[in-house]
Each structure stands twice: as structure tokens, then as C-alpha cells.
Design a binder for these strands. Structure first.
Lengths: 253, 253
DNA sequence: CTGGGGCGTTGCAACTTCTGCAACGCCCAT
DNA sequence: ATGGGCGTTGCAGAAGTTGCAACGCCCCAG
């Protein structure tokens, strides 16, 4: 809608790939160097980009701080956190909390496993949307046509042999998840890692977030992990209850 | 430099305070509603803001994802991380890594204490610049006139009775830190928490990051914590060495 | 030592884009 | 019903933004 802002914002993902100098930015934006310079200057004034000692631009500190604040303001996160910690204390495994927002699912909280073998993941990182158990739950709650539209739009990277291969398989999986009210990821993202997940619902019954417990094969088998399902679901329901209670007219997410 | 972009970016910190509707955004920006709407729309297209179910705007998911990428691209972070983990294994306390950038110091990595009592802090959060041990180290390395200028510009909140009260005290502390090559924060931020910190230097000797070990009084006394200083300094030096070696012509931060 | 190329920067005039207005439609509460 | 609040749209004037060309700078090559 606004050309100037549009261009300026396009610079950010570009810099996320790595530092770039003025010429590179101008080229990739398809604008004159002087234009790129002015945009970068404005971004710089707001701390969104930073100029390294070699004159190249990087993403700036304020961007990071802003994102931090953004996450700290999420009400579900606040409510869920103590429950996640308690669950971690009970089972010892890695616990995640994720939300869906405009075609992306991302982790907004995490409690690390107490076992020495830990899985890689990071708060703020978009999750593997086609395979993650939490993603399945969040997407399964969308209206039918939205699921269809999204499923067709996605890529289906074959992380492992068990990854969801195509839109049809994905929609089928979503239907199943929707039906049963919980989800799993058994080696679909990383060969040796399994997850069980449960949905967190708002007062209106819509899924507002999802939580999961993940553990590598070397610690517990998939079957053993599945025995935790009742506990995970109970925790999710507790969070749902508290969230619905406290949330009066506040927005989702 | 660019009015439109400037206005658009001003919306972000505003939304970081909490969700806001169109009218509020327009008011605080001092522009017409229709203008604010167009700016918000552009931000929305880029995923920087998100529209909640109650129509109010929040910061968006892409912002969080971008910030995540920004941090993952920091080379010092990559190099330092395993060292921080090892240090944590040796002493058990919380370990932080921080960098300075344009009048701000922020944590870019953290390894949690293994003791039950943990301190609050969060990656991406700007640190209490006038009292934190890592901040002292990073600022102490600036040129004299920069230190002066910055010191005068800062606020000096009295978190505790031992907080740095004013520019003079701060500059004096920086001089001392610069001299001795390490820093402490003994209850200057939170009454019961102490830190010891050491600088990480690039090939040219400039301080590029700082790391610290923090622990509450209830776990170890300040004196006991200070006995860790040699270990902390050695770790920082190891990181410096590795960073200087690997870094050929790359930028700071 | 000198010349050339690369890169960031600036002033300017033309023009594209953005702005604020006013009016409309919508929903909720009175 | 009806008024107020809020988001949304089309439009013409105003204003900001654009690309150009030229400059200065630094570094490398001749």
C-alpha cells in the first residue's frame, strides 16, 4: 500500500540472510543507490539496522529488543509458562508452546529437557509446519477452506522418510488430528525425535495455542512417550481453563 | 530521512507496549486515521504487525522470526556458545553473553543456572546499562569522548542503593574497569545478585562482546563468586582467541 | 607518484506518491 | 429507531520521494 515503507521493510529479510553493502541492497531492491541509502538511514535511525565497522549493514539491536517485547506481551505465554515448567518437572522432557499466525507457526516458549540429550529448537523460530505436532493442531482448527488453501500453498520438504509428503496427506492428517483432539510427530522432522502435543483452547473453543512434549528415541521410545499423552492433555486443558477464565475481551494469540 | 518510513517504524515500539486500535495509533503518530491505516496495512503485508480478532493490532510473527535470524547470524555467538556451556558445567551458575550496539547493551546468549534459584533475564533484552558488569566492560572500551557523551546521555535509575548514581561515578567505574580488564556488579541491579564479567576481544584488541557469571547471594557469596574470576577470564580469552583466528575481514558484533 | 575504478554521499528538479478530508458503511448501545 | 464510534474508500492538492549526475574519498594498479 505504501511504496516507500514497502521497500524499506523489504530490506529487513534481505539483511537477515547476512550483512550487505549499499550497492547490494539497492540492486536487490531494484532502486537507485541514493534511494536505498535514504531507506537504510531511516531504518538505522530506528535501530532496525546497524552499520558494521566494514560499513556493511546488519539487522539491528532494537529489532531484537522489539521482538522480545512482542513475545513477553503474549498473554497465553504468561499463563501457560508455569504449567509448562510443572510438566517439565514431572516428565523431564522438552516442552514447547506454539501459536499460529498468518500462515506461520512459531514457538513462543520452551522449557529445556532435563536429560543431557537435548533437541535443537529456538523460541521465535518458525516451526516445520507440515510435520510438527503443534502445527498440526493449530492448522486443524482452521476452517475447511482455509486448510485447503494453506495446504496447497505450502512446501513439503522431506526432512525424513516419514515427513508429510504432499497436500493430500497433510489434509488427511489434519482431519485425523481435528477428530482426535491431539497430535504426534513420530520422526517426521528429525529421525530420532518424537513429540506428543495437545491444543489449548479459548473460551469459544477455538485453538489459540498448542503445546508439546518432545524427546529423542535414545531417551524414551515413541510408545513410552505416548503414555504421557493424558498428562499433556490435562496440562493443556488446565491452561485452557485458566486462559478462558482470565480472558474477558482480549484478542486471540 | 524518509517521513513515511519514519512514521511506519514509529508504530512498532508503540505496539510493543501493547495492542492498539487504529485510532490510538493515528493519535500517537499525530496523523490522520487514513494515513495510519495505510501504514499499518503495509506493515501487515510484511508480517510486522498482526491483527487480532478484536481488530486491534499487535506486533507480528515475522518480526520475531527476523530477530531470531538476526541473532543466529552473529558470529561471536556461534563461537562463544560452546565455551559458555562448558563454563556453566564447571561452575553451575548463569552465564551471559552481551554485545554493545549504538547506545544499547543486550544479551545475545544465556546458559541457565543449574541451581534451583534462577535470575530473571532474557536473551534480546537490553541490559541495565549503568550497572551491569558486561555493560561496563563494553562501554569501557569506547573512546574517551564517546564514553563521556554516552554517560551524560544515560539515565541512572537507582535499582538498589549500590546502583551507579550519576555520570561521574559511572565514568570513574568505567576507567577502573578499563584499567583492570574485568568488571563486577555487586548488587547494583538486584540487591541479592552478583556478577563477574570478562571481555572478549577481536584481533585488533577491541572489545567485541562481554560475558559474565551471575549468582544470587543465597547460593554463593560475592567473595566466593570472585574466586571464579580467573576461570571466567580464561574462558573469555579462549573465545577471543578463537574469534580472532576465525574472523578475517568480518565486521564487529 | 599518479590515474582510474569502486563506493558512498549530496543537491536538485521532476514527478510519483502520500496525505488529509469528507463521506460512507457498519456495528453496537441507547 | 437512532446516534455515536470506528474502520474504510476515492479524490485532489500537497508533499515527499525518486533517480540523476556530480563530487569526494579511498584503495589498488600502473
Amino acid at each position: 500500500m505504501s511504496q516507500t515503507v514497502d521497500r524499506a521493510l523489504s530490506i529487513l529479510p534481505l539483511l537477515a540472510e547476512g550483512p550487505a553493502d549499499l550497492g547490494q541492497v539497492a540492486d536487490r531492491l531494484g532502486v537507485h543507490k541514493s534511494t536505498a541509502l535514504r531507506l537504510l538511514r531511516t531504518l538505522h535511525e530506528h535501530g532496525m539496522v546497524y552499520r558494521q565497522s566494514d560499513q556493511r549493514y546488519r539487522l539491528g539491536a532494537r529489532l531484537i529488543a522489539l521482538a522480545q517485547e512482542a513475545m513477553e506481551n503474549l498473554d497465553i505465554r504468561e499463563i501457560a509458562h508455569p504449567h509448562l515448567v510443572r510438566l517439565n518437572e514431572q516428565c523431564g522432557h522438552t516442552v514447547h508452546l506454539a501459536v499460529y499466525e498468518e500462515d506461520e507457526v512459531l514457538y513462543i516458549d520452551k522449557v529445556e529437557s532435563r536429560y543431557p540429550v537435548r533437541m535443537y529448537s529456538r523460541i521465535g523460530k518458525p516451526v516445520a509446519i507440515t510435520v510438527a505436532a503443534v502445527a498440526k493442531l493449530l492448522l486443524a482448527d482452521l476452517a475447511e477452506h482455509e486448510r485447503r488453501a494453506l495446504a496447497d500453498k505450502l512446501d513439503y520438504p522431506m526432512y525424513t522418510a516419514r515427513s508429510t509428503p504432499n497436500p493430500e496427506a497433510f489434509l488427511k492428517e489434519l482431519a485425523k488430528v481435528r477428530e482426535q483432539g491431539w497430535a504426534t510427530d513420530l520422526g517426521g522432522h528429525e529421525e530420532s525425535i518424537n513429540c506428543v502435543a495437545a491444543p489449548i483452547r479459548g473460551a469459544d473453543g477455538r485453538v489459540v495455542a498448542a503445546m508439546s512434549v518432545s524427546a529423542p528415541n535414545v531417551v524414551v521410545t515413541a510408545d513410552e512417550l505416548l503414555t504421557l499423552l493424558p498428562l499433556v492433555r490435562r496440562t493443556a486443558d488446565d491452561i485452557s481453563g485458566e486462559y478462558s477464565g482470565r480472558t474477558s475481551a482480549k484478542g486471540t494469540v
